[in-house]
Design a binder for these strands. Structure first.
Lengths: 147, 147
DNA sequence: ATCACCTGTAACTATAATAGTTACAAGTTG
DNA sequence: CAACTTGTAACTATTATAGTTACAGGTGAT
């Protein structure tokens, strides 16, 4: 299915999908969580799921073995924060949430120093957002999902 | 010049450019700030500048008149926050910083309620970032620019 | 060992946003 | 009127994303 977004969204849905996948792994920890099963809950293609699971696995959040059906959490759900997930799926580069314009004119006093004037502010705004993600654990999400 | 970003940045450089433009309007308030002049400091095309100035003007941050050379601040620099600028250039939709995946499977307990479980967290993370921008005034940026 | 099933990943597509550019209509001022 | 400006439409190139097809290679039950 093509993307259907009325407005520009900035941070890839990989993040939201990863949260969905990890929640499902915990909820269905008794069952066999194949990429087909996960994909049908998310409503996407199994390859999209395998790509995200692969990133989560590289980040040590998920255990998965080539050829053997089923993924599972590699840690307690209470030990996984949304910041861990966000970092795992590489939706935002370190200090890269806000784009800066390259090569302003060094002949101009403003052009010369605008980047160094702006950067600390961009960094602190990004940090504030990420700190908020760090406060939320996967268990907090699970508590909002009725059985 | 083509974009040259090593990594995905998420929030359009319109925001950074707008801050640059407004800073320059204040620094050069005695002069005539044509889109050509502004563009040469930013190092971009004058049309890009006019587009951004047009957005800033619609938001009431800048005064500019069709046909007459020069833009100027419509408010005191101390009365303009980075959040005002960020909203003006529409780089992030209200509650739209984080993309969500549309149409998860309603047959699955997780699919059914994941969106409502995640949304409040996304909103509060976005708010934290925006609150940080709201704390910074244009004058704070100007203080970091040596004369 | 075979076979059915899985994961991992490369390669390709379509979509959308951005930034830059050209072109020009329309406003303003001397 | 002439020389300048702003405002904006229309187009391009670049890039990231999400989805898809295809297939190599691992695994384990029979």
């Amino acid at each position: 299915m093509p993307q259907k977004e009325a407005f520009p969204t900035n941070i890839s849905s990989r993040f939201a999908v990863a949260i969905h996948i990890l929640s499902l792994l915990e909820m269905n920890k008794g069952g066999t969580n194949t990429s087909d099963f996960l994909a049908s809950s998310v409503n996407t293609n199994p390859v999209v799921v395998r790509r995200i699971v692969s990133m989560l696995s590289r980040a040590g959040l998920v255990q998965v073995k080539s050829g053997v059906a089923g993924a599972r959490l590699a840690k307690e759900a209470s030990a996984i924060t949304l910041l861990d997930i966000y970092r795992a799926v590489q939706v935002v580069e370190e200090n890269g949430l806000f784009a800066v314009h390259e090569c302003p004119n060094p002949e101009c006093p403003v052009g010369r120093s605008i980047q160094s004037a702006i950067l600390p502010v961009f960094v602190s705004a990004q940090r504030a957002m990420e700190s908020e993600l760090d406060r939320i654990r996967l268990t907090d999400i699970l508590h909002s999902i009725p059985v």
